[in-house]
Amino acid sequence: MIRRVTLQQQQPPAFFVRGPSPFARLVFFSALSIVLMAVDSRLHYLNEVRQGFATLLYPLEVVASAPVRIYRHVNSYFVDQKSLAQENQRLTTFAMNQALDLQRLTNTEAENAHLRLLFEARQKLKPSTQLAEILHTGRDPFVHKVEVNIGTQQGVAPGQAVVDGFGVIGQVTRAYPFTSEVTLITDKSLVIPVQIARNGLRAIAFGHGRDSTLYVPYLPTSVDIKEGDKLMTSGIDNTYPEGLTVALVTRIERDPNSPFAHIICTPAAGTDRRRQVLIITGSLITPPSPISKKVSHAPRQ
């Protein structure tokens, strides 16, 4: 009953203290949002503003990720005998598979020689790398991005390539003081110049934006490409070092009505497999381009 009385007491003032009508506010704030969206997507003025506010949000993110960190930490202490036995068995199987692979070594020697050449070429560049840990994957299911735990304070800058033990993961697109945002090669906004490892054919791979795949457009239907072919970075973009695995061709559709083959690839590196990635922070030493320094943009569909 007391509550009912307070309800009646509180109702009348609510009629007077409302300020501008909700509709006026809606119109004002929608206009503001639309202007912000246009400015952000077309003019790129807001990058500094975003960096500043993202730094303010950083402590909140640290607090938010604390429970998961603590859980992982505690969990690693309480490993039971069963899971250890399971892991032991898994490792034994793994070792046997590796022994089998060793026997196949002679068959892959030709490939190995080729890889060694690529490796030497890569060694010449000696890119300096930095180990980063993935803080979280993107919160937006539409965007293929991850956030890592090092930023401009550690020498990370936008445009640097990000790799793991299996191949290229993506590129740093935004660097904040303590974190940086890595766009994965499967994001639809990322384009990567590649070379087919088997025959050296150059191509450009685009992120598909869905299903964690890449596609290679603008190759004629008669192109010499097979399922299972390995795509490697060609290194002609001065961003990615040469000879890193990018993806494996998984599906080719040759439609006679279309002048181009429809080639779908899956990335070799996986952000879901490892939490650690390498950011190539050193600049790649390449001779200056004789024609012009201007970077031409890859054509989009």
């Binding site: 909700p22 912000l36 993202a54 935004r174």
Partner: peptide, 18 residues
Amino acid sequence: LADGSLFGQHALAYIVAA
């Protein structure tokens, strides 16, 4: 800001619902 997504898209969605 937290998402790193396009500025203003969540804002627009929230004010329509609000």
